[in-house]
Design a binder for these strands. Structure first.
Length: 580
RNA sequence: GCGCCCGUAGCUCAGUAGGAUAGAGCACCAGAUUCCUAAUCUGGGGGUCAGAGGUUCGAAUCCUCUCGGGCGCACCA
């Protein structure tokens, strides 16, 4: 249960039934956590948003509402503050019930039904199949994967999609690059890889595999004979490579959609015909871009999509001069296909360098769905690889290029995943190797992992001190939670109880990073409580001569572990039970 | 020239569908350990929320303009 939603409903009911507020729109009414905890546990703006319609002073109206709120179950006291806030304190019993719910649900705590089973398609990674993934791809991959998990936790029916850009010029370049490696594998001296082809070593074993499979079959043949079969071989090998990288990162997809297949299946024609029927395709000439005019600009008649009718700045070409479809055209087909598969809500995760592409794709989605579909595009900014505050120098030519796989091998997938989510997607991210290896508070992954491990260490210690039997599940879970009365204990429960709401707001905003900050705060709250036991021995979790209190505190510790594990579950990070 | 994103403490960044005295970490200063793991914790100083208008009970948040930074701008994907 999201406690804020619960109280919003309760207070809304109160207001709807008040004589003075008959017939008023109460949708602006909210119940939130006050920023300053000294103002109480929850606060409502009810009096302020409703006073105008009631023709009353906010504080007078607040007085009436307050009287009713005080009668609510779980509310200990209420007071009017500032311009008309009604601040409430909840009683300890309420918090104990929250704790009991966490213990009951375990890592399912935070699961929500706000998605109501609505279908959402999340497309992410979609790296060109021309080589191994780099760190920037990794950020988009983790972001998309975790956003998908987050939406699932919030009750959406999510499809994780990978769009393979296996059509167009870059895969021909890949085929030519592989052909050279193939010749090399057959013993030819190929020298330097020519400019314009992919020089990476990763094609060497692929060339060998091709030579092994086909022998000298393609040697000496004209390009038009070998281009297609070798291209297929190359793409398939590159997708294996990418799938391996994704596997190492723990990133999953439900559907891999091939651009090439969309074209050959006629899906692009289908999309374009649909637009033609709606009079959204025409032959026309575009104005040259103002300011920086490309050197090779020439006046040209093109097949254009009327993107301007759906909010884009200019109409967009869908066909190249050789008659083949532009990338945009097949991408439109891809999104139309998603819509036809039942996904009115789509989310695409792209690199920030594709920012200029957002409007046209959103325009296309509107056009292809008769304005029923929606597309949210999440742009992920650059990742800067650093070491001890200095940028890591990278050069493909010099062979000092750091791939995603290198980073995963160096620090592990859990660290990569978590760090990728410690920034908003549209903010740049520094990935510092030295910081990430550090075992200190400066390293958020470590700090949160340590809180989880510490919860286990307390339970282990309790088993040692009190005996395995004393800390069996049923005894810990069946403890008398009402013994938890210290303010710092209640504070921890209060923060844990905010988790369901956080999941919902992060899901609605499509912002998984909020979970990272929450988990860090939660870890800090727990470490603080642990340390209070140093100053005041009566606050330690394990009190040998007070077993009932110890049981209640072990339950608290266990719940803390569950909430962190719940967050890690969405993040795809394995919670550690010990740090050694 | 146009579009998108961004501008919050010395640094790196949060800021929960507009809420009360704007937060955290790092760094800096001062402290805490016979201890449930010191890989931690407590306290302190530090701000024109880039600037100017506007909307309203109330703005870091919404709108307009200005300044400053990043990205992108026809037959690449």
């Amino acid at each position: 249960m999201n406690l804020f939603r619960h109280f919003t409903q309760e207070v809304s009911t109160i207001c709807a039934n008040l004589e003075a507020l008959k017939g008023q729109d109460i949708s602006r009414l909210t119940v939130e956590a006050p920023r300053d905890t000294s103002h109480g546990d929850i606060t409502t703006n009810a009096a302020m948003v409703l006073c105008k319609g009631a023709n009353m002073k906010p504080r007078d109206l607040a007085e009436i509402i307050k009287t009713e709120i005080e009668k609510l179950d779980g509310v200990r006291s209420a007071e009017i503050a500032g311009p008309g806030f009604i601040n409430c304190r909840l009683d300890n019993g309420f918090w104990h019930r929250q704790l009991a719910e966490i213990l009951k649900l375990g890592t399912d705590y935070g699961t929500s039904d706000i998605g109501a089973g609505h279908k959402v398609n999340v497309e992410y990674v979609s790296a060109n199949p021309t080589g191994p993934m780099h760190v920037g791809h990794g950020r988009g991959a983790v972001f998309g994967d975790v956003l998908a998990s987050l939406l699932e936790k919030a009750g959406f029916d999510v499809c994780r999609e990978y769009y393979i850009n296996d059509a167009g010029a870059q895969v021909d370049v890949l085929a030519r690059s592989l052909y050279l490696r193939y010749l090399q594998a057959l013993g030819d001296e190929i020298g330097e890889i020519p400019e314009g082809l992919y020089p990476g070593d990763y094609l060497v074993p692929v060339g060998q595999a091709l030579a092994k499979r086909d022998g000298e079959k393609w040697k000496g043949m004209a390009e038009d004979k070998w281009l297609l079969p070798i291209r297929d071989f190359a793409i398939s090998a590159m997708m294996d490579l990418i799938r391996e990288d994704l596997g190492a990162l723990g990133v999953k997809h439900d559907v891999f959609t091939s651009e090439h297949k969309l074209v050959s299946d006629g899906k692009v024609d289908e999309a374009i015909n649909f637009l033609k029927e709606n009079n959204l395709i025409y032959q026309g000439v575009l104005e040259p871009p103002k300011g920086q005019k490309p050197d090779d600009w020439e006046m040209r008649e093109q097949t254009l999509f009327k993107a301007t009718e759906f909010g884009d700045d200019v109409d967009r070409p869908v066909q190249k001069s050789d008659g083949s479809w532009t990338y945009f055209a097949s991408d439109m087909a891809c999104h139309m296909d998603k819509y036809n598969r039942g996904f009115a809500d789509m989310i695409d995760v792209w690199g920030a360098d594709h920012g200029g592409y957002v409007k046209r794709m959103q325009a296309a989605v509107k056009a292809l769905s008769n304005n029923k579909g929606s597309l949210d595009v999440k742009l992920c900014q650059m990742v800067n690889l650093m070491d001890a505050g200095e940028p890591v120098k990278m050069s493909k030519r010099a062979g000092t290029f750091v791939t995603l796989r290198d980073v995963i091998d160096e620090v592990g997938k859990d660290v990569v995943r978590f760090i990728m989510l410690t920034r908003k997607n549209d903010a740049g991210l520094d990935f510092d190797f030295s910081k990430v290896r550090e075992q200190s508070k400066d390293n958020p992954v470590f700090y949160v992992q340590y809180a989880h491990a510490r919860s286990y260490s307390v339970l282990r210690m309790a088993a040692e001190e009190l005996g395995e039997d004393a800390v069996r599940d049923d005894k810990v879970l069946g403890g008398d939670l009402s013994l938890l009365v210290d303010e710092s204990e209640i504070a921890l429960i209060r923060l844990m109880a905010a988790w369901p709401r956080l999941v919902e707001s992060a899901a609605e905003a499509h912002e998984p990073h909020r979970m990272a900050f929450y988990m860090y705060d939660l870890a800090a709250e727990f470490h603080q409580l642990w340390n209070k036991g140093k100053d005041d021995a009566s606050l330690r979790f394990i009190i040998k001569d007070d077993v009932p209190l110890t049981m209640a505190r072990l339950a608290l510790v266990r719940a803390l572990g569950s909430v962190i594990a719940s967050g890690f579950g969405v993040f795809g990070v394995t919670p550690k039970e010990e740090m050694r």
